[in-house]
Nucleic acid binder design. Structure first.
Lengths: 355, 355
DNA sequence: TTGTACGCGTTATCAT
DNA sequence: ATGATAACGCGTACAA
């Protein structure tokens, strides 16, 4: 039960002054070699560590970054946090996590809890509710208080800040183009209701690809899915809806789901209907989650590189923080992280020759 | 660009002393109503928040807990963190996350990074490497420095601390008993190499169930799997091994996998071999992850209640911290969280009558 | 070569 | 009713 060491205790123990001890620990040449060694040995023995709270108070920076995310039980966000952690730790920053559960209120509460000097800056992905309300005053106020924000994934143009995003529209286009390249003509889109940018943009990409290939857009082939809970009930409803579309359009030969759940569910439904994947039907999902990997057949998906996004977000925030320290200020940037189509077994390997 | 408000600034702005302002903000009756209102209005307008770093320094507690986990991209741990967050936030605690990636070295680095006064206590699940080395001096030293530790899941008897665990052995027994109740006689066990307590205890449970039902234990039916990477390569090897066992023992009628990956993989392999699940073969996994839920057929598993474990761990740590504050000390406890068999579609519903 | 004093922001005790 | 002062732990400019 060692008491924790402080400069003061070391000083009194060794009959020196606090500042002498402080300097000795930094190996300051002002202090006699003799005392330096004595102090250092003593400090090491009692493994003294400078109190970080005192340092934070003095330096006016905590070397801690606040990460606000909608969900932590979610492969993508977990990956992002991993990336943030990695970079942050390598730069001696700590990471405090706040989870909003997609709630506007909890987003504000979480941020206010940290805005009292606990953190130097935020990395945040907005909650769905915040996007729906489109009320970003809490973000603006944070920035007004000189606390920098880096937004990732669910960013918003109204707020001036650094942003890390993927090109959802282009990614959607790319995925659907892949299906068309295989010779698919009747492509089912599984997307979200429109308030989430994500779903909307990926839907635009779907339309882009069709248009570029002169395939007429058919609203019948678009299933817009509302909020999906965790329950088996919701899951069954989703299956139901997909089944219904297949009944009306048994000749669907491609599926693009804007997230993993949609795509995997559709894949399962299709197989239960006796369809061969990928022989007669190709399926592509979105997100590099674990479901896609273990689905049968393994699901081809658009990977978002969550880990990399986290790394970039952390690096960007830390750069900004150190910039502030040194007085300069560069303009805000928006970095677009490239997505990648990971070809697995739910699509054809060879591309059908275009006629 | 409002500068952040401090007591000092308010005081000088209002022509009062710092201590008057401080008291006024607490609505201390010593201060004239007039001044109280003036100060409070002013503070509210500039939304003043007491600097938490200064408070931490003064109070000698940060109201922050450090959570050290092996992996964050893992459904179970993500759930636990959720539970911790929930309880911590409701008690006005912040949560700092440190990820070890199963490395002993990173575990120490992470802990040392926080042990400098950044946090009041730890919640930790040990890394595999730490368990292998069985070197727990860093934990003991943390405790010696009066920083309480709550261990969860991967806890260890050598260290005196509060612990939250599940009964792995009993859970394994329960799962296998369920298979036996269905009339299964030749049950394949997929487990880990022995250095991880988890796998070993669940294996014991497997043996218990067999013994209780007078089914001879057959080493041939135990597959001990080493470290599994994230790569498709490793995955394929796993499938290979399971396949081989099936070739030698085509009449296996039950499978118990000590984790989700093993069970889902076995499920897929079995189906590819043309076996009907659950008609001729039942499969049970471990952990309430997402894979089990979306596997086909949906996988019956032993749920570990990760969220609840997180809640309990956080509550236990906070209790301990407040106890220390008030001087009393209660003995360390080990809380066992009950697991639950979640029956889905990879096992039979009805129990075969025992003869 | 060593020590004193100050400030970071806050609260609590003790004058006035 | 208000204000000055000390203390939390640290680093550093300035004295000695």
């Amino acid at each position: 039960m060692k008491p924790k060491m402080t400069l003061k205790k070391i000083a009194s123990e060794l009959g020196l002054s606090i500042s002498t001890v402080s300097k000795a620990l930094k190996d300051n040449k002002d202090i006699s070699k003799e005392n330096r060694e004595k102090v250092q040995a003593f400090a090491k023995f009692y493994n003294y560590r400078p109190n970080s709270v005192a340092l934070s108070l003095k330096n006016k920076r905590t070397k801690t970054i606040g990460v606000i995310i909608p969900e932590i039980v979610h492969h993508y966000f977990a990956k992002v946090i991993s990336g943030i952690e990695e970079v942050a730790n390598s730069k001696e920053y700590n990471v405090i996590i706040g989870v909003t559960n997609e709630s506007y209120r909890k987003e504000i509460i979480n941020m206010e809890m940290l805005i009292d000097g606990s953190i130097d800056g935020f990395i945040i992905s907005l909650s769905k509710e915040t996007l729906q309300k489109a009320d970003y005053t809490h973000l603006q106020e944070t920035i007004n208080q000189n606390i920098p924000i880096v937004m990732f994934d669910r960013a918003v143009n109204e707020i001036p800040s650094d942003k890390i995003v993927i090109d959802d529209r282009e990614s959607g286009r790319m995925a659907v183009q892949k299906l068309i390249d295989e010779g698919r003509k009747k492509i089912l889109l599984l997307t979200t209701k429109d308030y989430l940018n994500i779903g909307r943009l990926r839907t635009e990409g779907y339309k882009d690809a069709l248009a570029e290939n002169r395939i007429p857009f058919d609203e019948d082939l678009v299933v817009r899915i509302g909020e999906l809970g965790d329950s088996d009930e919701d899951q069954r409803m989703l299956e139901e809806r997909i089944n219904k579309v297949f009944e009306l359009h048994p000749d669907i030969d491609g599926i693009f789901g804007v997230n993993e759940i949609y795509a995997v569910t559709a894949l399962n439904v299709a197989r239960l209907r006796g369809l061969d994947v990928p022989e007669t039907l190709s399926v592509i999902g979105f997100s590099d989650g674990i479901l896609s990997k273990y689905a049968r057949p393994h699901l081809t998906t658009v990977s978002q590189h969550g880990f990399q996004m986290g790394e970039i977000a952390a690096q960007t925030l830390i750069n900004r923080l150190e910039e502030i320290d040194s007085g300069e200020e560069t303009p805000y940037t928006t970095q677009v992280v490239k997505t990648e189509l990971i070809i697995r077994d739910s699509t054809l390997n060879q591309v059908v020759q275009k006629k």
